[in-house]
């Protein structure tokens, strides 16, 4: 059981990164970004091609995929989000659906429908930590997620620019008449969300294995569930929600292994989302 909890914590941390991207964009631009997870898949393909086909070091592939995600996020913000600043939010949400469809179509066209494999960056034996086996990849993932969470928390709190990004989520007009360029905050939000997606995809890939078009749609559902449970308006909530979903899923899977209840983890996630929305619609950490 302890083993399952550790696995759940690692996966949950990665869900948190996806969920944080969803929360950032929801608070900053008022829309659900349906392409949040697929963007990570798309950039993962690029990393796979660079590492496996072009024999470049894993770090180069990872850096390239993150840089590509940043470029896509910022470009999408400039082309589709910023011009729709005063449009109904559902219009922007549909634009993210278009981005999702475009990403899947491009994946099939450019990379083919057949799944690809990317060997994990760190190989080596698992370490026994008080009776629980933790692989080097899992340790690296936990450390990275903690670093990202801590780094972003400090950035949003202690830098003026970070604070302005948080403020933009509360009142865009006020930002403008205080002399703070709103466009920069908006570009940053979409760029950061895209980078988080690419990073999370790289981290979760060893657990999923095969990379194929649309493979991460299930992860989007989990990340969205995490964001809804934690609160769509709360960054802390995104992290908490991610861990709840990850650990809950792993624990239930562990308890039902070998039985016929294979869909129970997913069912429980949806039940948790529904219960949250009924009894605390703003999420565990959200404010009304």
């Amino acid at each position: 059981m302890a083993q399952a909890l550790v696995v759940g914590l690692v996966i949950g941390g990665i869900y948190s990164l996806f969920a944080l991207g969803i929360v950032l964009i929801y608070t900053g631009s008022g829309v659900l970004n349906f392409a949040q997870a697929e963007l990570g898949t798309f950039t993962l393909f690029v990393a796979q091609i660079l590492v496996v086909e072009h024999h470049l070091p894993y770090a180069v592939g990872a850096a390239a995929s993150i840089a590509l995600a940043l470029a896509i996020g910022v470009t999408f913000e400039r082309l589709a989000v910023w011009p729709l600043l005063n449009a109904p939010r559902v219009t922007v949400a549909v634009a993210t659906l278009a981005l999702l469809a475009l990403a899947v179509a491009l994946e099939i066209t450019l990379f083919g429908p057949v799944g690809r494999n990317l060997p994990p960056p760190i190989t080596g034996h698992s370490v026994n930590v008080i009776g629980v086996f933790v692989s080097p990849n899992q340790i690296a993932s936990l450390v990275l997620v903690a670093l990202v969470a801590g780094g972003l928390a400090a950035f949003f709190r202690y830098t003026d620019f970070g604070l302005s990004v948080v403020a933009a989520a509360q009142d865009q007009e006020a930002l403008r008449f205080l002399g703070i360029p709103l466009a920069r905050a908006s570009m940053f939000t979409w760029g950061l969300a895209a980078v988080l997606s690419a990073l999370a995809a790289l981290l979760i890939q060893p657990d999923i294995g095969v990379i194929s078009p649309g493979a991460y749609s299930g992860i989007f559902i989990r990340a969205l569930s995490a964001a809804l449970i934690g609160g769509l308006g709360s960054m802390r909530g995104a992290f908490l929600g991610g861990v709840i979903v990850g650990v809950g899923e792993a624990a239930i899977r562990h308890a039902t292994v070998g039985s016929s209840l294979t869909g129970l983890p997913e069912l429980c996630i949806f039940a948790a989302v529904v219960l949250t929305l009924v009894f605390r619609p703003q999420g565990v950490f959200g404010s009304r």
């Binding site: 003026d160 604070l163 948080v166 403020a167 509360q170 009142d171 006020a174 930002l175 008449f177 002399g179």
Partner: peptide, 27 residues
């Protein structure tokens, strides 16, 4: 400019609101 609705940042602290008021100068 100080709008009628005030448009403070409700989920930021007093200190953070003031910091954003001085954003341009602080740069």
């Amino acid at each position: 400019y100080l709008p009628q609705a005030r448009q403070l940042f409700p989920r930021l602290t007093v200190e953070q609101n003031l910091r954003l008021g001085g954003y341009v100068m602080r740069r």
